[in-house]
Design a protein around this nucleic acid. Sequence first.
DNA 1: GCTTATACCTCGAAGTTAGAGGCATGACAA
DNA 2: TTGTCATGCCTCTAACTTCGAGGTATAAGC
Lengths: 119, 119
Amino acid sequence: MSNRRSNPDFLNGVPELLILQLLSTRAMYGYQIVQAIRLSTKGRLEFGEGCVYPILHRLEADGYITGQRETVAGRNRVVYRVTASGARRLQDQVSAWQMVVGAVENVLQGATHVEPGLA
Amino acid sequence: MSNRRSNPDFLNGVPELLILQLLSTRAMYGYQIVQAIRLSTKGRLEFGEGCVYPILHRLEADGYITGQRETVAGRNRVVYRVTASGARRLQDQVSAWQMVVGAVENVLQGATHVEPGLA
DNA sequence: GCTTATACCTCGAAGTTAGAGGCATGACAA
DNA sequence: TTGTCATGCCTCTAACTTCGAGGTATAAGC
């Protein structure tokens, strides 16, 4: 889990962020999350089941979400909800993400004004 | 190179983006890039040499940058410049990055208005 | 009976990243 | 002179994330 790096752990991890965010809005099950990400990003982002399910299992193992089996119309589902710990995790991930976005923006906007005193 | 995915290839790839961007501003050498990223992101992002050098080699192998050996004050350096192909690559990566940022923002701002018609 | 949509899952390949380490020079101090 | 620091290059490996392919099963519609 997580990383031992100094960097925000967020140069990947986007799927986890989106999943946590969606679940914080309302309880959802895996298959639904797959569709929701595609729809709510207007197809710009798409994570398959092979990506989403393992993340859900990891998040549950880490105590960030809890799963509850349901049967609706002959369909078995595992409905997930964020825990208190998961809500904190989401907050952390969101600020980490925004920090990365800000840092990248700095470089892209040529904030190279701060030049290293080399050469 | 690149990926065979449908997703923008950009949930990682931030180091490459920053390196290309910095090099498009002016010619730089590896060690300098390491410092420049740390400085221009105000220490928020930091990629070590073990990360930067392999990327430089890959970018050069792909024809996105060219390296030129120099010796300054007994120091050996390899100064890199972006090629025309590298400039296009940078443009692509920048728009991919902005697309991802936009998509994530959508989800974070609860643009879940577009709900999947499931359940 | 076939296909499609729903719904869960695992496996394995492929890719990125980062730390640890190695090499060599020049400068500066003890 | 001997150390240490900053410079400058490099590789290797471990760890991680992601994703396609594949497997199972039910219900609905043709």
